[in-house]
Nucleic acid binder design. Structure first.
Lengths: 208, 208
DNA sequence: AATTTAATGTTACAAAGTTCACAATAAATT
DNA sequence: AATTTATTGTGAACTTTGTAACATTAAATT
């Protein structure tokens, strides 16, 4: 019912709403929020309506209430545990990123095949890949960030799925083949960049 | 006319086609390629037809020809120069990623405000932000990867646009406000992860 | 040479997503 | 208290995207 597109916008709204809240605002109109997030006011209202969020005619929406409801939709009452598999450059960047916790996401462990990377004493320990099943089962981990090279992505994904992982955020530029109950999101930086170049060149051609 | 979605699929096709080529295959059918990329065969044919790519009835598509045509669409005859702005963890991961060159993308310079990061002698030099306009103009750079903190993303984007940048791949979780002739793509890792968790939890609720 | 087959290419249909238009209503104004 | 105004909420129209059906054609088979 609620598709990825709506969810993405909801997360964008949340971001803007947080900023507004920090600035001391208490209410927001669909028009303001739309302008801030690049969405039409009608779309904002429709999204809110779809998620059961009510505003006041002429009074707009209460920011605290909105944030509370959005948090609720995303089950932000409990910390969501995630692992990182593959501790190359990108994996490390993800590990060191500080922005997860304030969104109730905690990276609890990382895994790699390279023994040189194992470090149990760190804030986030790095384990050998073989330990993945055991640790995932012990800690009830259902979500993983996959930052291994393209050539082993499918293989590693299979291991993760066998270990009970239900959702994978993959950075490998391949279409992972997984059973239907597994959710995959792929971020392919090179493709995004290429598609950006394609689009911006198109635009330039017309104008200058 | 050609929208982002098609472009994305075309890039996925290319990836699979390259692998097939390396394995020694010469032709491919819409059915094979669709299976490999998670796209319906009809969609594959429609995409190709839209981009003016012709196959042979009963004979499928010639892989070399396909790859040549796709390269042509993406103007891969010339190296596309890109800069990275912000050399934190993520910026560095991007700088060190080896996969750009084989897609005819070259990161020619990086920029940061932190003087400790300046390193001219590296393969990819890191310059102070103030040098951005000069270098962009000298090297005719039109595309940038933005990996600065959210709080300064808009400000830095403005500087880049003033320096002639036409396309920005941003990793900051904000909607950048830019003039209409500028193309923006935003990759928000936290949002992707949150949306993944939302979706995979939904799925799990039903099944186990 | 005629027929069958297995693929492409395209047209029609369906679904999803977005925008538009406007009714409903709470607050503000007179 | 009546009227105006500003905003939400939603049903309908439109647009985009994807799917299905089928006509077309080149190769293979008989």
């Amino acid at each position: 019912m609620f598709v990825s597109r709506n969810i993405t916008r909801l997360l964008r709204y949340r971001n803007s709403l947080k900023r507004m809240q920090e600035l001391g605002f208490e209410t927001v109109y669909s028009y303001n929020l739309g302008k801030e997030t690049g969405v039409s006011p009608e779309q904002v209202r429709k999204d809110f309506s779809q998620f059961g969020i009510k505003g006041k005619k002429k009074g707009g929406y209460n920011i605290n209430e909105l944030l509370f409801t959005i948090s609720d939709i995303f089950r932000k009452d409990e910390l969501q545990k995630v692992i990182v598999v593959g501790t190359g450059n990108l994996g490390n960047a993800v590990l060191q990123y500080k922005g997860f916790l304030k969104n109730m996401i905690q990276i609890v462990a990382a895994f790699d095949i390279d023994p040189a990377k194992y470090k149990k004493k760190q804030t986030i320990p790095v384990y050998p890949l073989e330990k993945l099943p055991k640790i995932c089962q012990e800690l009830y981990i259902k979500t993983a960030i996959l930052t291994v090279p393209e050539s082993v992505a499918q293989e590693v994904a299979n291991i993760m799925i066998k270990a009970g992982i239900k959702g994978i955020l993959s950075f490998a530029p391949v279409v992972l083949k997984v059973p239907p109950h597994i959710t995959i999101k792929t971020i392919c930086i090179v493709h995004e960049l290429e598609s950006l170049i394609y689009q911006s060149v198109q635009v330039c051609d017309g104008s200058d």
